[in-house]
């Protein structure tokens, strides 16, 4: 009996092993390695000086850690509601009863397939003072202004959020659109017989049907926004004066510019726990939806 079970186990091994090894080395091991590094004064060349919890104490006292964590959180606060509402609006447009449907869907989604390098570069040149497309359009419609989009803290945030919305709203739009198309026509037909207005149909049929996917989108968006890095690095470089620098950029700079990998790993752990809690909430919610 035991031998038979063993033979059965062995048959599964070649199927499981390739994934198992890659998963173990590149997904699980970094968690433990990160814990180890965070307890050491660890740099790129000569490593290893056990410092206990010193890095964690430093982190709590580090104003740049709190500033960049706040910047990342601000990005989450600014992008989540705008992204969800815009996605909903675009999905409603792409669901209109018109021949232009596919054109709408394609146009709203097209920016999301472009590389972050391309969209950031487009943003920089479109937002440039004196010659950028945005400023020339602003002046062409008669507004006498020459905004310096990257030099002012508020404008820099507006630029980053605007570009992020334009770039990545398409994904959420598709999720809303799929849900919209799954609402049975009979719901609308029945309500029409009852004399419901368009607004009442939207308020009492469409919106309630979109709540489950809406919840998924909000949580996925919060998770994604907490990982923000590339477009900020490439558009504002974290400026002006660190006002838009996100946590991941600071972690990168501490690790690779200041050569302090131990402290970078410590701050990564902070980010790890924030994201872990968010994804547990997200998975719980998803399980709730499935049941």
């Amino acid at each position: 009996m035991n031998k038979k079970a063993w033979i059965k186990d062995m048959k599964a091994v070649p199927f499981l092993l390739p994934f198992f090894i890659a998963y173990l080395i590149f997904t699980i091991l970094p968690i433990f390695k990160g814990l180890q590094m965070s307890l050491y004064d660890w740099n790129l060349v000569k490593k290893m000086d056990f410092v206990g919890l010193e890095n964690y104490v430093d982190m709590i006292k580090d104003p740049f850690f709190w500033q960049t964590l706040w910047n990342t959180t601000l990005f989450v606060i600014l992008t989540t509601p705008t992204m969800v509402l815009l996605a909903l609006g675009l999905a409603l447009l792409a669901n209109l009863n018109t021949k232009l449907k596919t054109f709408f869907r394609g146009s709203f989604f097209l920016p999301s397939i472009l590389s972050v390098a391309v969209i950031s570069f487009l943003a920089i040149f479109m937002l440039q003072p004196y010659s950028g497309l945005v400023n020339t359009v602003i002046q062409a419609i008669g507004i006498e202004a020459e905004p310096f989009w990257m030099a002012d803290k508020t404008l820099a945030w507006v630029s980053i959020v605007g570009v992020t919305l334009w770039w990545s709203v398409g994904f959420n739009m598709i999720l809303f659109l799929t849900s919209l198309q799954e609402i049975p026509d009979t719901y609308y037909e029945a309500s029409e017989i009852d004399g419901a207005t368009r607004w009442e149909q939207f308020r009492y049929i469409t919106l309630p049907q979109l709540i489950p996917i809406g919840r998924v989108i909000i949580l996925l968006q919060i998770l994604a926004s907490y990982k923000v890095f590339a477009q900020i690095l490439l558009i504002t470089g974290g400026g002006p004066g660190g006002a838009t620098r996100p946590l991941i950029q600071y972690i990168y700079e501490v690790g690779f510019t200041q050569n302090n990998l131990g402290y970078a790993a410590t701050m990564s752990y902070a980010l790890f726990f924030i994201l872990l809690i968010l994804s547990i909430i997200q998975l719980k919610n998803q399980r709730l939806e499935e049941n």
Partner: peptide, 30 residues
């Protein structure tokens, strides 16, 4: 059919909760 199947599956599921961005520094060392 093999032993510890559920355990292995749950072990794989845990990966969903591990954010790659937050383990990138130790990944670099590995």
């Amino acid at each position: 059919k093999f032993r510890f199947k559920n355990f292995i599956f749950i072990f794989f599921l845990l990966g969903l909760m591990i954010p790659g961005e937050a383990t990138i520094i130790p990944l670099y060392e590995i």
